[in-house]
Design a protein around this nucleic acid. Structure first.
Lengths: 223, 223
DNA sequence: GCGCTTATTAATGCGGTCTTAACTCGCCTT
DNA sequence: AAGGCGAGTTAAGACCGCATTAATAAGCGC
């Protein structure tokens, strides 16, 4: 994922760049709106971080110019925290706001969240459906008040299916979304994991009511 | 009131000096620890602002040297925001910490507050959970009434995990948040420190109930 | 500079986890 | 009714991750 960072303070450029690189992003930096625009056209980043206060053309200007031909997510950095700023910033198309002085980790978290949001993924949050509760942050799944012991894959699979309860997923899709795009395993692997999950969360063996098979298609979680 | 500012970045020297002069302070600046020491002896400032990262002798060194003959208030500037830094910084006698990138007004406010200095309140707070109590300011951890002997890293790691009890952290995240953003050490290092911590705080060896492993993910502190 | 404490890395062993393959069952089609 | 296809189930082996220990390096106080 490519991130373009435009700020006129060298310290900020450097620290933010270092942080984001550590998080695995490709980072491009610019100190002025002009250079930012040039780099934007060159690199077509997945996300922009713009300082509101820039010499000559402001971050607002740059944002407006970019918004004319793209809906790329944009985070504003600003020293001012007034409601007024937030409003006008969001007006012209900013997706998020971070007020200086900011915490590096917080900024990184917002970048991550915004990218996830814009690429269709929802951020990590607790899923609760009926008597089942899954907390990805604590990495805990609770069924009828009892803690479930799940392996990493089982947990990931259950969390994904529960988060999209009702929706059917093919084995291939599940491999993509749960295992990852670079996993090259047989699709039958999914069956096995579903089987184990059923042993743990289904009340009556042989009669699944939560992890349901949709024959010829795949599996779905029923709430 | 005289303030001595030591930082090797010209931009910071200039902006901070300007700001503080506006606030009515007499400001002296130095780019190296040596020069800082010289100016300190010459001017006997009422407060010091030190960059942690300086060429040759670090800000820590300078702080330690100055602490030998004075209790002059000291503020550290650092690009690193790790718990460990905060802790070790306070250990050697810093009175406050400002993490780069920082807001000028915030720094000025801290200078003011520190100079006013009645009963300095630190951003570091005591964590108490069950029979464990951790006081970062005193740098003391007490378990069941008994004082724990912890190394700096052990203390920082325990403090961080306990402060975020329940939440799982990957090894990489822990390295980021506890070791610091510019620490390039193997993630296995975390295992070893967790191991030592367990030896000190877990009641039964081999069956951790507080520092729990989440297989495939990382570690978490359970209250 | 010397010795102690602390941090980090590397190596090893163990145990859990994942994956595959084989076999079975059931449903659908012809 | 038979064949084929999809899914359930199980066992076995490969693989991976973690705990643990020892050895080395680095920091710190004396």
């Amino acid at each position: 994922m490519k991130v373009l960072l435009v700020d006129d303070e060298p310290t900020i450029l450097e620290t933010v760049e270092t942080k984001l690189r550590k998080e695995g992003y490709s980072v491009f930096t610019a100190a002025t709106a002009e250079e930012g625009m040039r780099l934007y056209k060159q690199t077509k980043p997945d996300l922009l971080i713009l300082d509101v206060m820039l010499p000559q053309r402001s971050g607002y200007d740059l944002c407006r110019a970019i918004r004319k031909d793209s809906k790329v997510p944009i985070i504003f950095l600003t020293a001012r925290a007034s409601e007024d700023d937030r409003v006008s910033g969001l007006d012209i198309g900013a997706d998020d706001y971070v007020v200086k002085p900011f915490n590096l980790s917080e900024l990184a978290a917002r970048v991550k969240a915004l990218l996830r949001r814009t690429t269709g993924e929802t951020p990590l949050q607790i899923v609760e459906t009926g008597n089942l509760k899954i907390d990805p942050v604590r990495h805990e799944a609770v069924l009828d008040g009892a803690n479930l012991t799940l392996s990493p894959k089982e947990f990931a699979l259950l969390y994904f299916l529960a988060r999209h309860a009702g929706q059917v997923f093919s084995r291939d899709t599940l491999l993509d979304r749960v295992w990852g795009q670079d996993a090259f395993v047989s699709s039958r692997t999914v069956d096995v994991h579903v089987h184990w999950l059923r042993e743990r969360i289904e009340p009556t063996p042989g009669k699944p009511i939560r992890l349901v098979t949709v024959r010829g298609v795949g599996y779905k979680f029923v709430a």
